[in-house]
Design a protein around this nucleic acid. Structure first.
Lengths: 354, 354
DNA sequence: TTGAAAGCGGTACCAC
DNA sequence: GTGGTACCGCTTTCAA
């Protein structure tokens, strides 16, 4: 005997509203979409009925008619490939279910902050409906983002933010929290207290300054005698980083911990190795890339803080789609919770990245 | 001047194939769906053309016709509400974009492992198309899962697994990794070494045994003299937990760390408080619930390992939907990477839960 | 200001 | 075996 499916609850559609109000579906459409040429009273009645019946538009059917698929342009750097490709994957993955409603175009620029303007201008020219971008140089991009806003093209920032612009939202790891997690880890790793150092790119960058602020606040909170004795700017340059790390290690014979708040951690690790202090310094790094893997395995890196680019991409696309398709406005800022990657969960994280 | 959208690339549809092959759309449909009553040669030609043109069915249009929405039944316990409700939220959230294709029904049972059979039988009777469930008692559920398999109803396990059954996939945090992360954290928190203890529910449970194995392996790996001196079974009972925690603290005057691998951590914390050893023992707990929040804030809990129910729900639904709608078979096991929640990222995690 | 009807891509069914 | 066509929910256009 075959099981009898209970009849699924019929969803209310546009013609249910029409029937309930005694008008035609055309009028219902006009009311629902604020179109001109409708009696205000009729509109009100229709909207009330829609509300009362719990009408939810069928997006699939909507986009069936006009093959005007929504076009989204994604603007990301080529370097560092692993990171940005993961982000692109997250976007592609999230866009897959909407393939028939949405088309995603990728426009790359060489590096964060370099050559960002031209592709964005071109995308706006070509009339895209939405933008996802990582504003490396918010100052240069500002006017363009404003122009997008004036064209009613929503912009979602990823990884970095341009909070002063009229963007729809931004998806990123909150830098204060990231720094704060690093600080708490290092403090906990050094219950006996000790001197620690903080490596960054440029302190002028808002993100980096925030990480430092978070780091400091955690050292104070945990309060077991861990002291920040040096803040080093490595200018995202391998050689500068290496030299300054060596100098740091020489100046502080009993340094107990280092937090590298940028992706530029390899020179620091090499300097530690050269000075034969590996294992005697608790190192917390940023992000995850192939060269870091053996260092984590060997315990030279106690933990690394991973910004989860795939997740950021997914959330950025979802926020943008929901706004474009349904008009749902996301919160002004979407914070991704970073992962603490250590030896014990490294393999699992790598598995997910592949 | 208005920007000119480039015409979106027309997707190939069923009638493009019909035109290319010189048959009618009805025939194309028969070929694509392996329906009877079609000449094998015609079928071959149609399929080739479909392949050559890169045909992708428009799922939205497909489900437009027959309101035979896919029905998914979700079987989860009521206790502990916060955790399972988060899981349900993740499912609902992920199902939202497919609301017109998919209807989700929730069937609850009182506790994990209790009263799981009846609702499941009822769901199968009623002819659902897919199942999401947390098998608390895999032995009792096994036959039903097999019956689902024989009815071609895919099953996705969440949180706990029933690996010996023919389920489509399972979504959960790998217990070995969870235990291993806890072990690594505690080891790192105790660079000077010391005695630690492990609290669990029943060691007979496979999950708990795996966590212990992971915990042990990390202690050995980090290898800084941390020793596991006691494994305590609290039988998920508050009073048993409290009594055994007191006994443990009395027996080990210089206990340095405790990992509670179940959600039942409050009695342990109360025992530590009663013995005035708060702050002198590194405690790692499991999951996140309101009573734990102030303990983390106060530093009595160094870290808690959170299984991310929302994410598990989302991934379970996506895997099931993609299989039902598109026939995509997910990997045999989807591992969720647990979050390490500490004071520094607590607020952010709570924000996401709300 | 409103109604009626065509058509989007696909399914189901009837007629040949 | 195959072709033709009504219909799903919605947008759009044209006529009233």
């Amino acid at each position: 005997m075959k099981a009898r499916p209970t009849p699924p609850p019929r969803l209310v559609g546009i013609k249910d509203i029409a029937r309930a109000t005694g008008v035609s579906i055309g009028t219902v459409d006009r009311a629902l979409h604020d179109k001109p040429g409708i009696n205000p009273g009729t509109r009100r009645r229709v909207l009330q009925a829609a509300d009362r019946l719990g009408y939810r538009p069928n997006l699939a059917a909507r986009h069936l008619k006009s093959p005007t698929r929504l076009r989204i342009s994604v603007h990301l750097p080529e370097e560092i490939a692993l990171f940005w490709d993961s982000l692109r994957d997250g976007i592609r993955e999230a866009a897959a279910p909407f393939a028939h409603t949405l088309s995603v175009e990728f426009r790359n620029n060489p590096r964060l902050g370099e050559g960002e303007v031209a592709p964005l201008e071109q995308a706006l020219e070509s009339g895209v409906n939405g933008l996802i971008l990582a504003p490396g140089d918010p100052a240069a991009l500002g006017p363009l983002i404003e122009r997008a806003a004036s064209l009613a093209v929503p912009v979602v920032c990823v990884v970095t933010d341009a909070p002063s612009c009229e963007r729809l939202t931004s998806v990123s790891a909150d830098p204060f929290t990231v720094g704060s997690v690093a600080g708490e880890l290092i403090s906990r790793f050094l219950p006996g207290g000790g001197d620690v150092a903080f490596f960054t790119g440029w302190l002028g960058t808002e993100d980096h300054a925030e990480k430092l602020r978070g780091f400091r606040s955690s050292l104070k909170d945990v309060g077991c005698g861990v002291e920040l004795v040096s803040v080093v700017e490595a200018h995202d340059d391998e050689r500068v980083g290496y030299r300054r790390a060596l100098a740091l290690l020489d100046a502080h014979e009993d340094l107990k911990g280092i937090y590298v708040s940028t992706v530029n951690s390899m020179p620091v690790l090499r300097a530690i190795e050269r000075k034969r202090r590996a294992g005697r310094i608790a190192v917390v790094t940023t992000d995850l890339f192939p060269a870091l893997v053996p260092r984590i395995r060997a315990g030279q890196v106690a933990a690394t803080i991973y910004q989860r680019p795939v997740s950021q991409g997914r959330q950025a696309l979802q926020a943008l789609y929901q706004f474009l398709a349904e008009g749902t406005r996301p919160p002004g800022r979407i914070k991704v919770i970073p992962h603490v990657v250590m030896r014990s969960n490294l393999d699992q994280v790598l598995e997910r990245m592949a």
